[in-house]
Write a protein that binds this DNA or RNA. Sequence first.
DNA 1: GGATTTTCCCAAAGCGTTTTGGCATCTAAC
DNA 2: GTTAGATGCCAAAACGCTTTGGGAAAATCC
Lengths: 342, 342
Amino acid sequence: MNLKQLSQLLGLSQTTVSRALNGYPEVNAETRQRVLDAVRETGYRPNRAAQRLATGRAGSIGLVMPTADGIESDVHFGEFLAGLGDEAVKHDFHFVINPSHPEDEVATCRRLVASGNVDALFLAYMREQDPRIAMMKSLKTPFVVHGRSMGIATDYPYLDIDNTGAFYDAARLLAQLGHRHVALINGPDYLTFSKRRTKGTVRALAEHGLVLRDECVSNSQMTDEHGFRAMERFLQLEMPPTAVLCSSTVLALGAVRAINQAGLKLGSDISLIAHDDVLPMLKPENFMVPLTTTRSSLRAAGQRIARRLIADILQLETLPQQELWKTDLIVRASTGPAPSGK
Amino acid sequence: MNLKQLSQLLGLSQTTVSRALNGYPEVNAETRQRVLDAVRETGYRPNRAAQRLATGRAGSIGLVMPTADGIESDVHFGEFLAGLGDEAVKHDFHFVINPSHPEDEVATCRRLVASGNVDALFLAYMREQDPRIAMMKSLKTPFVVHGRSMGIATDYPYLDIDNTGAFYDAARLLAQLGHRHVALINGPDYLTFSKRRTKGTVRALAEHGLVLRDECVSNSQMTDEHGFRAMERFLQLEMPPTAVLCSSTVLALGAVRAINQAGLKLGSDISLIAHDDVLPMLKPENFMVPLTTTRSSLRAAGQRIARRLIADILQLETLPQQELWKTDLIVRASTGPAPSGK
DNA sequence: GGATTTTCCCAAAGCGTTTTGGCATCTAAC
DNA sequence: GTTAGATGCCAAAACGCTTTGGGAAAATCC
């Protein structure tokens, strides 16, 4: 059932039917109702490809999903996607997800846009001087970056959380509690959010005359296993840290296990602060010893980005092009004063 | 840059350029090379919407993502998606993800197909007598179901794991170890995989003259928190179980925490077997006490389904339409003989 | 009552591909 | 030396929608 058949059925022109469906004013209310009824009855759905070809709009947001044999799926990606979905469903948008080898992201983005399959692009997993930004700026397709790059002008639309500030706050708290040796279990070192978190940590420690030792830093994918390994390694140091920062509750999961295994008590022998993306599957307040966290909802970020993208495409409202969200520092039982004598 | 412009640039007809690009034989090798060179130089990309309209093929696989305010993002969804991606990227396919309220799935599926935006559909989160199956069978669009429905003929294409068998094996092992009181922390009760797992458990216990008591069963979303709560509840029973089955390592995470908190020793005071979807973020062998599991890779399932779908669309190879994967029962330290005197 | 606007609808021209049906030219065959 | 078949190319017709540029009838105005 296509528009032609439908219009013949109704004894109307394609034009009128199309207008009736798309809410144009120049069509009689009664006629419109007839059309709407016929649609309901026949189950007619406009062919999106044709619609897209005619309007140039696709009703979809593109994203590139990094994938490769070695690359593990990211819990955080799913949570973010759920946020995007919440908002997209309200406007009948969908996503076009293009898997890509991480090395090939620029080309994949370009291809995705050129294909005409998407109205806007969402960019994430930002790196230093990320080439995707310049590429996207040279096109006219709207885009929003989740996170920020580094070392290039920040004159592009983004939504980021204040990673530097979050870890500055967290590290400062630890320093104030008397901790002299702090460790950091961070995300992959090539991603900018990791770099910023390191920076915030270093800055806060420096203000208290402390340093973040190289052997007290771990960079890895954010899985339970990596958290465990890193913590295990830290605890075997000659001068082990008395406090540790984790870039994710998933990392914290492993870290806490290593701490327990070593027979240490979380919150007294050793303190821990994790960044909490508010993953429903893993709540910091439900750990055996509830975790002190820097909190910022990943799902909310997804919702917001979808909203901005859609507003941009549909010209609905003018939203700020650059947003930097502060994080909350929520103190729970996993932090305490540094053990004396250390 | 479109086909028309490109062909004018080359002094050829659109037909010839199109044929050259799509590998048709009736074009001179030299001409083809000229076209290919021009494409490289101009960065021409065919407009997918137009291509779609002309061919009827879209190069994409559709999936409906359940989303709603109360619904939490599912770790398992992300992992599965990664699997799909692995395979899709090889054939330059992408996904069209349509978020939908769970109540509205049938309509969303139908709309997604009717939109002409996808060549095939992937169905998951199967329920009893799931109406989506009949709906899809009435259309000509290829589809594969991940899981199986219940109470209707199984004459549709699916890939499922042997949930009944997995939990039968696991429960039997527990019974053989002398456990008389077994509990089950399962997924949502309206999903068929949960039902099958319950069935397998009940059957194995029955063969040893045991029953699965109602108060020893929990159905919920598979998050850490629900695992914790369920286990906590079980341990407060007058006659607490000495062994527990978990439908996911995520649930097991919470359950183990509750066990520790109660001062019980996993593997001696209480035994636990979890189903392991091989989530990279949470490996059973890395738990403090490594978990005995029934294992089946979710990512592998995603890869396989993508492969089947693509093969179907492109008519590449004939793959079996119905697959039931056995799971591995891997014994680790979290299972042991039932404590005596109970 | 004629002029002007408003209301409602239509035919036809795109949008950028693929595909159909032909038409030359060149080669091989009798 | 004509004929039959390849070979290599093209013009034009889809595909299913939106949008442009009217145009007839009805309503409104002086």
